[in-house]
Design a protein around this nucleic acid. Structure first.
Length: 892
RNA sequence: GCGGGUGUGGCGGAACUGGUAGACGCGACGGACUCAAAAUCCGUUUCUGGUGACAGAGUGUCGGUUCGAGUCCGACCACCCGCACCA
């Protein structure tokens, strides 16, 4: 899924040292020593292994699994850390948490690596996985590694083949011709990202469109339910739901059949168009067919000029930028159609802007009320008749001012529609045309259209899940029999020649037909990797070593309670997964419909970029910032240009490897930094000042806890009475636990961090006060409690430090297995409240009253204040507004 | 073009359903400790005027609703994101 950029020379890169003494003295928390030690203990005790038969309520938290591209940098870590905080927090709250990890391991880069470095895609992939697994472990994530999977594991893709065949038998898959990008020099199919400026990325040849038979999933049949399902996804960002809604693109309109006049015998009797503006039918001045329309093809067979025109339309890239700038082009076929409502006869054109894939591949053009039709009609001298009159315009004098009018209004020049509003006219036309016959069926038929197209899953590639079909000349496409599954990828493949290695493998594709026993060929296409990622979250539900997709396990764990990933997957991955799970339900393989109950899209980590005088990108470690704001190259003093913060990427070298952060500050600092300051959905800038701030705070927690254990004896019993100050500290401790729990539930990590900071300030003051006053039993208890609460509250965020502190205060077991602090509700309630006093809306003072004081009592107390009587200057106030617990406003 | 979002100190950002704007952090400045430095601790830090208690202004701009607006409404400006010949 995300495509992390590898960084090759991390281990030789210069290190930045911590801003202080080496963290070795006993005064300081030594993360470098403590972190691996705790990770080993967690690992040995297997505390993050999840069992399906655990009776506690389940909670499934998942981060989008990575593509194993090589190495991760710190920019990739943010979503894993956020997920980890949620997982650890929910464990403390008593849930049986599933928090797994895997690899989106098929895909093109492995084949490119095979070509460039002569390594096998399998080796390259599994080596990358090994590296990245260690890097992720370094982050101290509480993952159940026993459930790890890679989509290129035979077990996984074998199950996927079974699912494909279920889809096939259920009628959710079909095969049809579809266009691909064809590189005529390399004789190979190119992915969209391999086409650069209309040319093959490797050969530089102009890319052609070529038709190939390919497999499709019938996702467009599910348009309506996918759309309706969005309304049930209350814990998804509104933005993502909107993007999916637009992508599905439902529209309501009318199919209208136009009778061809004097058609030649080989031609059809009619042309069917789709329109969402039947109200503008009297303004129609032409019909336009797509170059790919069947009628176009029929006509082109006997009309060389039309054939040339169609070919010209085919040329040119498929990129949106090109389509966007393309001029409207048309070809007059000489045919005409009758107007269904008795208007003038209309010429039939073929036009480059009419899409075959949408609607019926044919339109009627109403130039006065559609920009595209207006452009077209202007170019070809077709009539432009306004039929919708804008509000307040005069029908006698109304003229278009240089463009179409696409707004609302009243119909005119439109026969029986005159005077109607646009919606009324739409309805009237639909009703009229439904009742009229052309041949044996109605001229008009109401229709719903979707923008969503079927999902083409065929890829002419080696490193993907083989499509388990055998092609027989006699029997057609035949499923691979169950006992011959999985269809394994052959290992002995060569990447010496262009094209699909499966296709030119000497033996692999030659098989006998399971049906008739005759000679047959395997399908050599593999599946789109989006198929792999459409059900991996269901695979994690099964215990390791068991069948990959188990109904009971999937029904137990799904839907994912909290899914976390980048916004770039807002449409395809999430929509495909939704379709996949719905289809699996229809096939009886799971019982749920929506795979992800809660979705969160996190922001990226960005970093400044650096260039030397030669324009070469520099790593952050190669750059030294001067106090005057300029930057120079370490060692040489050469000036460095500092660029704006951008997404971390290998090519721009603005990456920070997790190893260096772990070595210098410890990963807890990195985790704290990633959670602090910036709201999690926004991009966050990685800075050395920020990580140093995190380092200081980690040390601060350590000191607060250390000071407490030195001052207050362990196991101090709870005294009957508390002094004001210890009581205030207790209130703060309990409030902290309540508020941070709320913040984490709402994924407001930056706010949670701020609260912890704020509490630390208060805790520090309390320690000072206790020292001064003498550590009485009430102080001792309050301090110990504060330390225990603080450690527990930060445990999800800085788990290693928490363990070290937990051990220091004599906590039972591991912090990772401790529960969330028990909050005494009585301590969350204050008995007095301080209200600000406004005079005429401006804050002029405040008053402290008992919490239960009635508005009348508050009013009396406020009026008694000197600042109020001064402001009133003897007059009676016009009005006093008392908002209980909030504010008092005196209107003088 | 269509749809959506965001605008708050030098910076990242807080502010529950309309109720003390600037929490918390970063940076900066001043001080304590130290032979000195680092670390740590304390204080100041929206702007303007004033030595000062204090006064005035202030959440992109303009207007509105309200006792009270960062928050709600209308118009506009800027930036960001998504989609884009979808009939």
């Amino acid at each position: 899924m995300p495509s992390p950029a590898p960084s090759d020379d991390i281990l030789t890169r210069p290190r930045r040292h911590p801003p202080m003494n080496p963290p070795m003295s006993t005064e300081r928390y030594n993360a470098r020593e403590a972190e691996p030690r705790w990770q080993k203990i967690w690992d040995e005790r297997g505390i993050y292994r999840t069992r399906n038969d655990d009776p506690r309520p389940k909670y499934y938290v998942l981060e989008m699994f990575p593509y194993p591209s090589g190495r991760i940098h710190i920019g990739h870590g943010r979503n894993y850390v956020m997920g980890d905080v949620v997982a650890r927090f929910k464990r403390m709250k008593g849930f049986n948490v599933l928090h797994p990890m895997g690899w989106d391991a098929f895909g093109l880069p492995a084949e490119n690596a095979a070509i460039e470095r002569k390594t096998h895609p399998r080796e390259w992939t599994y080596e990358n996985i090994a590296t990245m697994r260690e890097q992720l472990k370094l982050l101290g994530l509480s993952l159940d590694w026993s459930r790890e999977i890679a989509t290129c594991d035979v077990d996984y893709y074998g199950e996927q083949q079974r699912i494909f065949l279920d889809f096939f038998k259920g009628g959710f898959v079909y095969r049809r011709e579809s266009e691909v990008n064809w590189d005529p020099v390399d004789n190979t199919v190119l992915a969209n990202e391999q086409v650069i400026d209309g040319r093959g990325w490797r050969s530089g040849a102009l890319v052609e469109r070529r038709k190939l038979a390919q497999w499709f999933f019938r996702i467009s049949d599910a348009s309506d339910e996918l759309l309706a399902g969005l309304d049930t996804l209350e814990r998804w960002p509104e933005k993502v739901r909107l993007m999916q809604r637009n992508w599905i693109g439902r529209s309501e309109g009318l199919h209208v059949r136009f009778a061809l006049e004097n058609p030649a015998p080989e031609l059809p009797q009619e042309i069917k168009v789709y329109t969402t503006r039947p109200d503008t039918l009297f303004g129609a001045s032409f019909l336009a067919l797509s170059p790919g329309h069947p009628l176009t093809e029929t006509l082109a067979a006997t009309d060389p000029a039309l054939k040339a025109f169609v070919e010209e339309c085919r040329r040119g890239g498929t990129s949106t930028a090109e389509i966007e700038t393309q001029e409207k082009m048309g070809y007059d076929t000489g045919l005409t159609v009758a107007h269904p409502l008795g208007g003038p006869h209309l010429p039939v054109y073929v036009a480059n802007f009419v899409l075959m894939e949408y609607g019926t591949g044919a339109i009627f053009g109403c130039p006065a009320h559609d920009q595209r039709d207006y452009d077209f009609a202007s170019k070809y001298g077709l009539p432009i008749t306004p039929v919708v009159l804008p509000p307040d315009a005069d029908p006698a004098s109304f003229e278009l001012d240089g463009g179409p009018y696409e707004g609302d209004g009243t119909l005119f020049h439109s026969g029986f529609l005159n005077g109607m509003s646009v919606p009324e006219a739409k309805e009237a036309v639909a009703a009229r045309l439904e009742g009229e016959l052309l041949g044996n069926s109605a001229v008009g038929e109401r229709a719903v259209n979707y923008r969503l197209r079927d999902w083409g899953i065929s890829r002419q590639r080696y490193w993907g899940c083989p499509i388990p079909i055998i092609h027989c000349d006699a029997c057609g496409p035949v499923p691979v029999p169950q006992d011959q599954l999985p269809v394994r990828l052959p290992d002995d493949v060569s990447f010496d020649q262009p094209g699909n290695p499966l296709d030119h493998h000497p033996t692999w594709k030659h098989v006998t037909c399971p049906h008739c026993g005759g000679p047959a060929r395997r399908e050599t296409d593999t599946m789109d990797t989006f198929v792999d990622s459409s059900w991996y979250f269901a695979r994690f539900a099964s215990e390791p070593g068991t069948a990959p997709l188990q109904k009971a396990a999937a029904d137990h764990w799904l839907p994912v309670d909290q899914y976390i990933g980048g916004i770039e997957h807002a449409i395809l991955h999430l929509l495909y997964s939704r379709f996949f799970i719905r289809t699996l339900k229809k096939l009886g393989r799971v019982s749920i419909e929506e795979p992800f109950a809660g979705l969160f899209t996190q922001g990226m980590i960005v970093h400044e970029t650096y260039k030397d005088t030669a324009g070469k990108w520099l790593f952050p470690e190669e750059v030294e910032k001067r106090p005057d704001g300029t930057a120079v190259k370490v060692g040489t003093g050469e000036p460095v240009t500092v660029g704006a913060p951008e997404k971390m990427s290998k090519s721009k070298r603005n990456v920070v490897p997790p190893e260096i952060v772990a070595d210098t500050y410890g990963v807890d600092c990195a985790r704290w930094f990633m959670l602090a300051d910036t709201p999690p959905e926004r991009d966050s800038e990685w800075t050395s000042a920020g990580i140093e701030g995190a380092w200081r705070f980690v040390q601060r927690i350590w000191r607060l806890v250390g000071d407490t254990t030195a001052l207050a004896p362990a196991d101090t019993p709870m005294p009957d009475r508390f002094g004001d100050e210890p009581m205030a500290l207790r209130r703060a401790s309990h409030r902290l636990a309540a508020q941070v729990a709320d913040d984490v539930e709402r994924l407001r990590f930056n706010v949670a961090v701020a609260r912890v900071h704020s509490f630390a300030n208060q805790f520090g003051d309390a320690i000072g006060a206790a020292r001064k006053a003498g550590v009485t039993p009430d102080w001792a208890f309050a301090l110990r409690e504060a330390a225990a609460f603080l450690v527990a509250v930060v445990a999800p965020m800085v788990p290693h430090l928490a363990e070290e502190c937990w051990a220091g205060i004599g906590g039972a077991g591991l912090a990772a297995e401790a529960g969330w602090p028990e909050i005494d509700p009585a301590l969350l309630v204050e008995d007095t409240v301080t209200l600000p006093i406004q005079i005429n809306g401006k804050r002029r003072g405040e008053i402290t009253v008992p919490k239960e004081a009635s508005p009348g009592e508050v009013e009396k107390a406020v009026l008694a204040l000197e600042l109020v009587s001064q402001a009133l200057d003897g007059r009676a106030p016009k009005r006093i507004i008392v908002v209980p617990q909030r504010i008092v406003n005196v209107v003088a």
